[in-house]
């Protein structure tokens, strides 16, 4: 097999995509209706956990319409398998924002948080390279661009760190607002400011489409909702353009990826370089979808899990020097660079 890693990654991406987008159907969680029986009742939110009905039904956070086939178990939003929350979610950002607002008791947070930290501890930011549904969509867009013979745009390092900086800003603002509206005095703003990042997140606009559900795409009722609507469109535009021209350049901006990236250093998955075997060809830097150059630049042996790295292992795959780059899992080598 020529591109073993790429192939496996594609496969994992597709499976994850199906699980995340159609997970609601597969696991029989419920969206609007109370019909049907959940497959794993244990995963459902317990009484008194939190209520999503606090926010306005017509808001852009609220997808509308069902399709005839999937009527009873419509696919959910990727970020939360269950509209009511549930103990497990896909998106950590949604999870944190929501709970900041509701100030949920810790015991309800534990299941998801433990799982999240465990996964991060094992896989670092692998979520981004292997699972994230909009990352996968992005990769798909990239492959269309390649087919159309349009060269990739490459961005200077300064631009990328700028994006990362903005990402911190987005995360900060998102959490700040979420926390603020949880304070009783400010609680009346909830219906407009609830989950501020989610309102503009491109995943919220894209993923429901795959379940033939219409995402809430416009709400011009008040100034705040109009602002969010327009921002959401803007971000959507940036998202599409970013993936079309710049491979994974979007992922430098994404706050979800940012949170994942905190766990990259010290994760179970390790990217290793044997520096003296490197011929400095730059292929790893050139092929890295995140445009990271560290693998190329490092001059001594070691583990190089960088913050920006989405652990796609493309660099390991493309490195032409046998054994120069390798990926290992808790010290056990899983794959290494090879000519073929």
């Amino acid at each position: 097999m020529r591109n073993k890693i790429s192939f496996t990654r594609r496969l994992v991406q597709i499976i994850s995509f199906i699980l995340l987008v159609y997970g609601g159907y597969i696991f029989k969680t419920r969206l609007h209706t109370e019909t049907g029986k959940p497959l794993f009742p244990a995963l459902e939110a317990p009484e008194g956990y939190m209520s999503t009905t606090q926010f306005k039904k017509g808001s852009i956070l609220w997808p509308s319409g069902t399709n005839p086939v999937l009527e009873n178990y419509p696919p959910s939003l990727v970020c939360r398998f269950n509209p009511k929350g549930g103990l497990f979610k896909a998106c950590i950002f949604h999870f944190i924002s929501e709970n900041l607002t509701w100030q949920t008791p810790v015991k309800y947070l534990l299941p998801h948080l433990t799982l999240f930290i465990l996964l991060c501890f094992l896989f670092g930011r692998m979520w981004c390279g292997w699972v994230c549904p909009i990352g996968s969509i992005g990769d798909f867009i990239t492959s269309i661009r390649k087919k159309m013979n349009i060269p990739a745009r490459r961005f200077p390092d300064g631009f990328k760190s700028g994006l990362r900086f903005s990402s911190y800003g987005i995360m900060g603002i998102g959490f700040f607002i979420s926390g603020l509206i949880g304070v009783p005095n400010f609680a009346r703003f909830q219906c407009y400011w609830f989950l501020p990042y989610c309102q503009i997140c491109p995943a919220r606009l894209i993923c429901p489409l795959f379940g033939l559900i219409k995402p809430g795409w416009k709400d011009f009722e008040t100034a705040v909702t109009s602002m969010f609507t327009i921002l959401a469109w803007l971000v959507m535009g940036i998202f599409l353009a970013a993936f079309y021209f710049g491979r994974r350049i979007w992922c430098h901006l994404c706050p979800v990826g940012l949170i994942n990236s905190f766990f990259n250093k010290g994760a179970g998955i390790e990217l290793k370089k044997k520096a003296v075997w490197c011929n400095k060809c730059g292929l790893c830097a050139d092929a890295c979808p995140m445009g990271l150059k560290e693998m190329y630049e490092k001059d001594s042996d070691g583990i190089y899990n960088q913050n920006g790295c989405i652990m796609c292992l493309r660099c390991v795959e493309i490195c032409p020097k046998d054994g120069c780059l390798s990926a290992s899992f808790f010290g056990k080598k899983i794959t290494e660079s090879k000519l073929k």
């Binding site: 013979n149 349009i150 060269p151 990739a152 060809c281 730059g282 292929l283 050139d286 493309i318 032409p320």
Partner: peptide, 25 residues
């Protein structure tokens, strides 16, 4: 010794990768 390992299979991408066979290493 050095191969061409193509990441971007676009015309420009291939040419770019060629420089990583002939010049960079």
């Amino acid at each position: 010794f050095d191969p061409v390992k193509i990441d971007e299979e676009t015309e420009k991408g291939i040419i770019r990768t060629l420089t990583l066979k002939y010049i960079a290493p």
